[in-house]
Structures are given as structure tokens and as C-alpha cells.
Amino acid sequence: MTLSLTINGTRHDIASDPDTPLVYVLRDELKLKGTKLGCGLEQCGACAVMVDGKVVLSCVSPVEVFDGQEITTIEGIADTEIGQRVQQAFIEETAAQCGYCTSGLVVAATALLSDTPAPDSAATKEALTPHLCRCGSHPRVLRAIERACAS
């Protein structure tokens, strides 16, 4: 049986083995390189995508788990108004240093604001705690999310 995924609104038949973690399918088969591989252990958040509107780390669960589900990657974030707002706010606050954690954080922030339009600071921090940033761009990311809420 062919596996198929709906990614950023487009249906894809998947040739990778069904045990392949989603991140490798996105990056290697579909060439969607925006989703990053950071640990392969669901510990750092670099590989975050949205599945049916919720943040999912894509580096462990095999692709077959996602059969038939709606997946949004960083490449599809701008398809929603909230996603556009988040990206614009990240740019305006320069909310990145090396940028390796940024895709995952933009995805997480978009999912957060889609669910909770005006989260307080504690709720924002809690939602982002699965995501590591080693450069220390955290204050800017928090400011960007505040800005995205306000705009």
C-alpha cells in the first residue's frame, strides 16, 4: 500500500521505507530542507512541524504514523495569516542568531498563537521549553511572539 502525506496542502506519495522518521522523508525525499535535524531524540525541537495544528517533533516517529494526516512544515507556515505574522515579527525583532533552531521555533510559535491568540509570558515560555536555542536568542524570540500577538 502506498503511503501518502498531505504536506503544506499538497498530497505526496511517499517512496521511503515506512519506518523512516518523518524528518528524513521531508528533507531527503521531498527536499523540504527547512525542517532541521538536531538530535534525533525528540529533545531539542529543531525538527518541529505541525500535524493537524499541533506541534510534533518529526525526528523519531516513523512516517507511516502520519499517513493521511495534514502536515505543515516551515515552508508552509506563511499559508496562514498567523504564520505570516509570526514570521514578520521574527524578522522585525531579529529573533535568530545562527538560525538553526529558528524554523522549529517559528512552527511552535505559530501553533501556539493558533491555539491561544494572546498567551501570557508563562504560557509562551512553557510552549517553547521543548525547543533548545544555544546562541541565546530566547529574549528576542519572546519579544517576537509578543509583537506577533499585538499586530
Partner: peptide, 18 residues
Amino acid sequence: DMRGITEMVTGTFTFLHD
């Protein structure tokens, strides 16, 4: 105007890993 910020935020910045 940080170089690369737009690409980083839209997932199009190319790291060596990509």
C-alpha cells in the same frame, strides 16, 4: 538588517547540513 534573517525565518537558509 541581519543578513539571512528572512531565509532563517522562512526555512530557506542553507546550512552545511542542507
